[in-house]
């Protein structure tokens, strides 16, 4: 066999090895996931969503878990989105290049890589103990907001940076102020990418478990936080209340973890069913983000 032929064969082999390497992880995981899903699928029905956790696996459900997840996600979004996007706009559009901004940039990039369990420690020390919020929905939401804040700042900045400078210059040239340029030219152009970043960050927060376990949310919760709007039979019939913010809570991933650590087999099936719900949720969010980005890239050509 001559050298050329040999090289060609090696070339083919490499192509094959490349496919194998790429697919290995994906297929391995797919097989595992299907294995789990087939366990839990039978457990998913209406009462699974409307029941509280219970000592009996067949009666247990994820009501308090998913309601808790919705609460924490709402609080997280209310805090992390304005702060994160604002900080992103400030750093990218307003802040002058200096040693300080450089230092801040490096730090934010690094904070995005800090282990989530450390944010749990911060949440525990700062919100649960120091501000005495106890193990409430509010403390959990704040903790997760901190966790995704650097991620949102980074993705906002990246989205803004992708808007070409000529667009800003054109806007200034017709007499727009800085804010008008940002508001009417830059933000709309970057909107798709910012939204993608937000969705990805929120999907990370939905699945995050370790920081909430660290702040002590791993408890048996068989009630819901007080609803912000509720009705009563007497006057004035409709009530608003923020008391729910201070109620203890659990979230979907923690409920799953709780079930996993029980010895009975039935709880494993419940955990598998909970995972189907959680996985479904995060995958939907991510698919949405991918589609959005794809759509955005297609729409805008500069």
């Amino acid at each position: 066999m001559n050298k050329t032929k040999q090289n060609k064969i090696i070339d083919k082999c490499f192509g094959f090895l490349g496919i194998a390497a790429t697919l290995f992880g994906l297929i391995m995981l797919l097989v595992f996931i299907i294995d789990v899903l087939s366990d839990g699928l039978g457990r998913i029905n209406w009462s699974f969503f409307t029941s509280f956790p219970s000592r009996k696996p067949e009666q247990a459900g994820i009501l308090s878990a998913w309601v808790g997840s919705v609460w924490t996600m709402f609080i997280t979004a209310m805090i992390a989105l304005p702060l994160g996007i604002g900080a992103g706009i400030h750093l990218e559009e307003y802040a002058r290049k200096s040693r300080l901004t450089n230092f801040i940039e490096i730090n934010i990039a690094n904070l995005a890589g800090v282990p989530s369990v450390i944010y749990g420690l911060l949440g525990l020390g700062l919100f649960v103990r120091y501000l005495q919020l106890d193990r409430s929905v509010l403390a959990g939401g704040f903790t997760l907001a901190l966790l995704i804040l650097p991620v949102i700042i980074l993705s906002t900045r990246e989205a803004l940076r992708a808007v070409p400078f000529s667009m800003r210059e054109a806007s200034y040239a017709v007499g727009a102020t800085k804010w008008q340029t940002v508001r009417y030219q830059v933000l709309p152009a970057a909107f798709g990418n910012i939204l993608t970043g937000i969705i990805l960050a929120m999907s990370r927060a939905v699945g995050e478990t370790a920081p909430l376990i660290t702040i002590g949310a791993l408890t048996y919760i068989a009630f819901l936080p007080q609803s912000p709007i509720y009705f009563s039979s007497g006057f004035p019939y409709l009530h608003f209340s923020l008391k729910g913010l201070f109620d203890p809570f659990t979230v979907l991933p923690i409920q799953i973890f709780n079930w996993v650590s029980r010895p009975q087999k039935g709880f494993f099936t419940n955990a598998a069913a909970g995972i189907i719900v959680l996985l479904g949720l995060t995958l939907i969010m991510n698919t949405l983000a991918i589609i959005l980005r794809h759509h955005h890239q297609k729409k805008i050509r500069w």
Partner: peptide, 11 residues
């Protein structure tokens, strides 16, 4: 995007 608690359970 898969949450780590899910990967833990699967493992």
């Amino acid at each position: 995007a898969i949450p780590s608690v899910v990967l833990g359970f699967i493992g």
